[in-house]
């Protein structure tokens, strides 16, 4: 009985930590700049002579 309760507490603690990490990560990434916007800034605001690709592999 005691072992089961301890196991339950341990599993709940693991889930709790995972939740906290997930929530923190989601909050941190939600304000991250869009990758495409970032690319445009770092490579200069290209406006002419460029083909907009459907995507990159």
């Amino acid at each position: 009985m005691t072992m089961r309760i301890v196991a339950g507490i341990v599993i709940s603690a693991v889930v709790g930590v995972a939740l906290a990490v997930t929530a923190s990560y989601a909050l941190a990434t939600s304000n991250a700049p869009d990758r495409e916007v970032e690319d445009a800034i770092t490579t200069g605001n290209l406006r002419a002579g460029v083909v907009v690709e459907y995507g990159t592999r």
Partner: peptide
């Protein structure tokens, strides 16, 4: 308690494995 924990993990696991989808995939 163990069963509840298993169920909770199963329900939350997709979000834990892919948190980047939250909030419009991080503003995308």
């Amino acid at each position: 308690l163990v069963r509840a924990a298993v169920a909770l993990v199963a329900i939350l696991l997709p979000v834990v494995l892919l948190p980047g989808l939250a909030l419009g995939a991080g503003g995308r």
